[in-house]
Amino acid sequence: MSSKRPNQLFRNMPAKVAAIPMVVTALFIFVGGTAWTVVYSFTKSGLLPRLKWVGLDQYERLWGTNRWLVSIENLAIYGICMLVLVFVIGFILAALIDQKIRFENTIRTVILYPYALSFVVTGLVWQWILNPEFGVQGIVRDLGWQSFTFNPLYSPQIAIFGVLIAGLWQGSGLVMVLMLAGLRGIDQEVWKAARVDGIPTWKTYIFIVIPMMRPVFITTLVLVVTGIVKIYDLIVAQTGGGPGIATEVPAKYVYDMMFQAANLGQGFAASTMMLVTVALIIIPWAMLEFGGKRRV
C-alpha cells in the first residue's frame, strides 16, 4: 500500500493562512452584512434597527411607491444606454488611436482625464454646462441663434439623458484605455494574414479582433456595470433627483429612506431588491461563463 495522499486541506498551507483575513472579512462583513440587511428588511425598523416583524409589508409598500418605480425605470434607461454607448464610443476611440497616429500619448491622456475627476465634480461641471442661462444654450443664443433650446436638466422627460451625457464623458476614457490595451495585445500576424486575404479593415475588427478581445471585454463589462448599479453621487451633484423626481435612482432612494425618512426597514427592503436584481443578472451569466467551461 502506498502512503496516504496528503490531506487536501493542508496543502499549500502558507497561502491558505495568508488568505484567512480576507476570507473572514468577506464572510463577516460582506455575507454577514448582507444577511443582516435582508433579515431586517422584514422588520419595522425606524431610525434604529429593531426586530419587530411585519412580513412583506416593506416590499409591498416599496413596489407601490411611484418614486421607486421611477428610480428603477431611470436606472434601466441609464444602464442600457450607458452600457451600449460607452462600449461603442470607447472602442471607436481606441480603434482610431490605434492607427499609429501622432501625439498618441497626448490624445490618450486628454480623453482619459475626465476619469480622474470624481462624480461630484463631473456632476457640478455638467450642471453648469447644461444650465440654460450660462451653459451651451446661453452661448449659442449669444451667438445669435435665439430660438436654440438645449436644457435637458430642466425637462423631466429627458433629464436622465443629461445625466447620461455626464456619465459618458466621465467613463468613456477608461473603456478606451482598456480597449486600446486589448488591441495592442492582438498579434500583428493576425492583421497581416487578414490583409493578405483581402479582408477590409472594419471586417477584421468586427469578426476577428473583437472576438479575440473577449477577456478585455468581460473585465470592462464588470467595471462598467458595477459603476452603473451604484450610481448615486453623480445624481446628487448634478440634479439632486430633480426636476421633481425625474432623475431619482435606487441607491438614492435607499439613502433617503434610511437617513432622511428614518425608515431603515424600507431602505433595507430597497437595497435587498437592488441585490436581487444584480443577482438575477450575474448568476445566469456566471453559470454560462464558468459552468460551461467545466463541461468541455
Binding site: 425606524g46 431610525l47 411611484n66 418614486r67 423631466p156 430633480g242 426636476p243 421633481g244 423626481i245 425625474a246 433617503d256 429612506m257 432622511q260 425618512a261 428614518a262 425608515n263 424600507q266
Partner: peptide, 19 residues
C-alpha cells in the same frame, strides 16, 4: 407626523409641483 410620513408627503409634492 413621523419623519417617514413627512418624507412621503414631501415626495408627493415634489412630484406634484414639477409635473
Amino acid at each position: 407626523l413621523t419623519p417617514d410620513t413627512a418624507n412621503q408627503i414631501n415626495t408627493l409634492f415634489t412630484e406634484f409641483f414639477a409635473d
